[in-house]
Amino acid sequence: MYGNAYIENDGNKVNSILADEDPIKLAEFEARIAAGDKIEPKDWMPKEYRKQLVRMIEQHAHSEIIGSLPEGTWITRAPGFRRKLALMAKVQDEVGHAQLLYSAAETLGKSREDMTNDLINGKSKYSNVFNYPAPTWADSAVIAWLIDAGAIVNQLANSKGSYGPYCRALDRICAEESFHLKYGHDNVVFLATGTPVQRAMVQEALNRWWEPIMHFFGPPDKASQHSEILMRWKVKMGSNDSMRQTFLNMYVPKIWDLGLTLPDTELRKNEETGQWEYTEPNWETFKQVINGNGPCNKERLAVRRMAEENGRWVRKALMNKDAVYATPLA
């Protein structure tokens, strides 16, 4: 599950980005994308295209693995067999997505090890939403429903992008995410129609998650030549605001249907424009969290660092030159 990539806006550097690209190859490349072709790993591509895709796929992969942490802590607490089995499978899927995505990013020339190191050293980002705590079971339900729903909106758009390996990974990921969404929705329905304690628990979780969900799609885009190029290359597939609108349109009515409320008195659909109106979430908070000052940034990276550290001997042993080759199972 993942929101929009945090692409830095280098609006003024566009000329220098394209300056040393071969104009003929660049024109051919752009013509292929315009014609709907997919770009494959061995094809020629501009340096900036490669750079932005690595950044984007890597952030997505990190988000999947870090995202397994807040939900993962609820696997051991899930109430009853049905939920326990479903949540295990769901979080396992997320880790599997990380594996798929690291492989897709590796086709662009950066190794999984380098990506992991950049993650634990704080150099690469991951979705901001995972820097918030999930203090109750209802938080895990809200994450599974609404964060995964947001991720689907984003990932469906990106699956129409231009880079073949990323699109193919996203097709598979979206299929799995749609089950997560059903699981999350079912879970929220049980809480919202349950005992007063369950109802209060899910309402409180929703209140807590509303701002992170609004942040999930990223700040309103500023038009720039840089983002125009990324759109033309089908790296960026939609504006942050348009994805947020799609999400609100699909899910706010479903939330209200359950008798739940959202902590924004301005939230309504303008029937004339067809657009949702809302209070802008605090983008300063967003900036603070993305720069490492969210409630859980340090904890999440510390856990990841510990896992990497504790597992080092295993990876080293498997790479040993005397290691016996075992036939893969599949």
Partner: peptide, 17 residues
């Protein structure tokens, strides 16, 4: 299931899960 997210490599997280 406690290995989820903590395995020595992703493939082992997935296997233990």
């Amino acid at each position: 299931s406690e290995w989820t997210g903590l395995g020595p490599m992703l493939e082992e997280d997935i296997a233990f899960s």
